[in-house]
């Protein structure tokens, strides 16, 4: 199973990015092999549809779940349709997020947690 974590950097020690569509990187971890890959998020500069673009990207990468802080309405609808479960964690490192997920500490969220455009124009 592959799980994606929204991150501000490209390593396991990078801080999580609380935004989904406008996160800096997607770090995708294969839980079986413990290997990971990091992808800069092209949605950062999208004029619109950053959330839907992110969901499509994760679906194409076969991610089964994502750990992030906030999910807007379009992203939530897209992730749900793609069958990608959303787990909520707003701060900490990618590694900490993974541990918390493995320990079953993260709440699963359904539906959007923020209004649209929440992640725009803030760091």
């Amino acid at each position: 199973m592959k799980i994606a974590i929204t991150a501000q950097g490209s390593t396991l020690d990078a801080a999580m990015d609380p935004r989904f569509g406008r996160c800096e990187h997607f770090v995708i971890v294969d839980l079986e092999t413990e290997s990971y890959e990091a992808f800069p998020n092209e949605g950062v500069m999208a004029s619109g549809g950053a959330g839907t673009q992110g969901a499509q990207f994760l679906a194409n990468k076969d991610a089964a779940a994502v750990i992030t802080g906030h999910v807007g309405p379009n992203a939530a609808r897209s992730l749900q349709a793609a069958g990608i479960n959303v787990y909520s964690m707003a701060s900490g490192t990618v590694r900490e997020a993974l541990e918390a997920f493995k320990n079953g500490e993260l709440p699963e969220v359904s539906g959007s947690t923020v209004r649209r455009h929440f992640g725009m124009g803030r760091k």
Partner: peptide
């Protein structure tokens, strides 16, 4: 369709296609 869309207004997950008219 999802590949060509510059505004991410149409997504394809397997046999499921989603459209976002407001985008």
């Amino acid at each position: 369709c999802a590949e060509i869309c510059a505004f991410n207004a149409i997504l394809a997950f397997g046999d499921q296609v989603l459209t976002f008219p407001e985008l």
